[in-house]
């Protein structure tokens, strides 16, 4: 009998990814702050990782952690568009700062209609239930596009992001705008994921993605129990091994794994690019 290698053995387990449509709802490419151009290796590494994990679609944005003005978010969205032009599996999310309502609304329309982006990305400039968000949320409802929102619940450490949205902020906004399609980002992004999952349990319009470097078990099983697979999206946010491992290791049904990988409930948003 021929002895198999670790790689050969492990590849069999990855057939789940090979044999199914896989959408990664949380990734980034980055701007080179010196040149103002796309950081090439960020796109190269992302592409390589996505190909290695048989990912069919990668939803991507370029958020800016520093204070930004409309020229800044317009610039990075243009870079995101360039990246999408170079790789057909890449789908863009428009990054905006809701403190600039008029410009943000204009940018969203431009990104959707001119760039073919499939949604928007919000950072921690305001809590998601802050009234400053309302005009942008209403615009996304009008355009029927999803909103990916940076999120987390810090426990011990004082957050360096004082307006980081936690699960209860999402529950609040779901009550105000139940028709909005909002993704509470990365339950594995660091922080109390139990809080995050519990907080949105009774908010069926809020979905979450599994991205982030935190690989606590049984995070996925808990999310399935409370939310169901249709409210969970596959994502990595820079931690590809972790994202794939969480799906492979979770003690849930194959059907639920496939539902998460495909992002069944959100699959229709990928058709948005056809508008372009």
């Amino acid at each position: 009998m021929t002895e198999t290698t670790f790689t050969q053995d492990y590849e069999k387990r990855l057939s789940l990814f090979k044999d199914n449509f896989v959408v990664n709802w949380h990734e980034h490419v980055w701007e080179d702050s010196q040149s103002g151009k796309l950081r090439e290796n960020s796109l190269d590494r992302l592409r390589k990782s996505a190909e290695a994990t048989c990912t069919d679609a990668v939803i991507c944005s370029i958020p800016l952690s520093k204070p930004c003005i409309p020229d800044d978010f317009s610039r990075v969205n243009r870079l995101q568009y360039e990246a999408c032009q170079r790789w057909d599996k890449l789908y863009g999310l428009a990054f905006i700062h809701v403190g600039y309502t008029k410009e943000a609304l204009y940018e969203i329309e431009k990104c959707v209609y001119d760039y073919g982006f499939v949604g928007i990305k919000l950072y921690h400039h305001y809590f998601i239930d802050d009234p400053q968000q309302f005009a942008v949320i209403e615009k996304c409802i009008e355009l029927d596009i999803p909103i990916l929102v940076h999120a987390g619940k810090s426990v011990q450490l004082r957050s360096t992001q004082p307006k980081l949205s936690a699960g209860h902020h999402f529950a609040n906004i779901a009550r105000l705008y139940p028709e909005a399609n909002i993704i509470m980002a990365h339950i594995g992004g660091g922080g109390d994921w139990q809080w995050q999952i519990k907080a949105i349990t009774d908010s069926p319009s809020i979905v979450t993605d599994i991205s982030g470097s935190v690989v606590d078990a049984p995070m996925i099983e808990d999310a399935i129990k409370r939310l169901g697979a249709r409210r969970i999206l596959f994502g990595t946010d820079g931690s590809y091994e972790a994202g794939v491992g969480k799906i492979l290791g979770a003690n849930i049904s194959e059907e639920d794994k496939k539902t998460i990988l495909e992002g069944t409930a959100y699959r229709r948003f990928l058709n948005r690019r056809a508008r372009k």
Binding site: F6, T7, Y10, R13, S49, A52, V215, D216, A217, Y240, E241, A242, V244, G245, K246, L248, G249, A250
Partner: peptide
């Protein structure tokens, strides 16, 4: 194990 999924660490080796 059991704090984390074993496959996450195995993936680091595989990839």
């Amino acid at each position: 194990n059991p704090f984390a999924y074993v496959e996450c660490a195995l993936n680091r080796v595989y990839y």
